[in-house]
Amino acid sequence: MLEKELLDILACPKCKGDLRYEQEKDILVCENCQVYYEIREGIPVLLIEETKPLPDSEGNP
Rank of each mutant, 00 (worst) to 15 (best):
V45E: 04
Q34P: 05
G59M: 08
L46N: 07
E41H: 09
L47S: 06
D8V: 02
E3P: 01
E41V: 05
R40F: 03
C30P: 00
P53S: 08
E58I: 05
R40I: 07
P13F: 12
L46G: 02
V29K: 09
P61I: 12
D56R: 03
I48M: 05
K25M: 07
I27G: 00
V29L: 06
C15P: 04
A11V: 14
L6S: 04
R20L: 10
C12D: 07
E49V: 14
E50Q: 08
I9V: 14
Y37H: 10
L47N: 06
L7Y: 06
T51G: 02
N60Q: 14
E5I: 03
R20T: 10
P55A: 08
K4T: 11
E50W: 00
C30T: 01
A11G: 08
G42N: 02
L46T: 06
L7I: 02
R40P: 00
L2Y: 04
E24T: 09
E5H: 09
I9P: 00
C33D: 15
R40E: 06
E5L: 06
V35I: 12
Y21W: 15
A11F: 07
Y36G: 00
E5D: 11
I27E: 03
C12Q: 03
D26E: 15
I9W: 07
E3Y: 12
T51Y: 03
K16V: 11
P44W: 12
R20M: 05
Q34W: 11
I43T: 05
I39G: 00
Y36M: 02
E31S: 10
C33F: 08
V45L: 09
C12H: 01
L46K: 06
L46F: 10
Y21T: 03
C30W: 01
M1A: 11
L19A: 01
D8Y: 04
G59Y: 05
P55Y: 04
L28S: 13
P44E: 12
L54F: 15
P55G: 03
C12M: 02
E49F: 06
K14F: 12
T51K: 14
Q23I: 09
E3L: 13
S57E: 15
G42I: 03
Y21G: 04
G17C: 07
D56V: 05
Y37L: 03
L7M: 06
S57L: 15
L10R: 11
N32F: 10
P13H: 15
K16G: 04
K25D: 11
A11I: 14
D26V: 10
L6H: 05
T51P: 01
E31A: 09
K16S: 13
Q34T: 09
L54C: 13
L10N: 11
C12G: 01
K16H: 14
